[in-house]
């Protein structure tokens, strides 16, 4: 499905803030999966979104009430708050291709 999404997204020509990504990573304690996910995410962002992303890490063990808000069930869950629409990727993000698709990341030097 993610393959279909990009079309309408790209359509609004201007791309007001085309590159800015607001990512939120939900973890529950410093588990290996969580650490791995965070590491993967950082590496990934540096590679593809250098300078135009922010990562917010939420530890549900500290803030359990936040889990319901983003309908988090699986840990770790990465939520793309921006750009819209909201997207979720679960897992330790070890499959880079899936993350790319899931976050719908357009390389800077994309078509145009």
């Amino acid at each position: 499905m993610t393959g279909l999404e990009p079309l309408p997204e790209r359509a609004p020509g201007g791309d007001p803030d085309p590159g800015h990504y607001h990512l939120r990573l939900y973890v529950a304690g410093q588990t290996s999966k969580s650490l791995k996910a965070l590491a993967n995410l950082k590496r990934f962002c540096e590679e593809h979104l250098a300078g135009r992303y922010e990562i917010e890490v939420i530890d549900l063990l500290e803030n359990p009430r936040l889990a319901a808000g983003d309908q988090v069930l699986a840990i770790p869950t990465l939520v793309r708050k921006l750009p819209a629409p909201l997207k979720r990727i679960i897992g330790d993000l070890s499959n880079t291709e899936k993350v790319l698709v899931g976050l719908d990341i357009r390389p800077r030097a994309a078509p145009v």
Binding site: T2, L60, A74, I75, P76, L86, R88, G91, D92, S94
Partner: peptide
Amino acid sequence: EIEESGEYDLEGLFVRLGF
């Protein structure tokens, strides 16, 4: 709405239920 990439568990469910 969910893309899976790598290992995960349902700790979030536990957290929510526990909370």
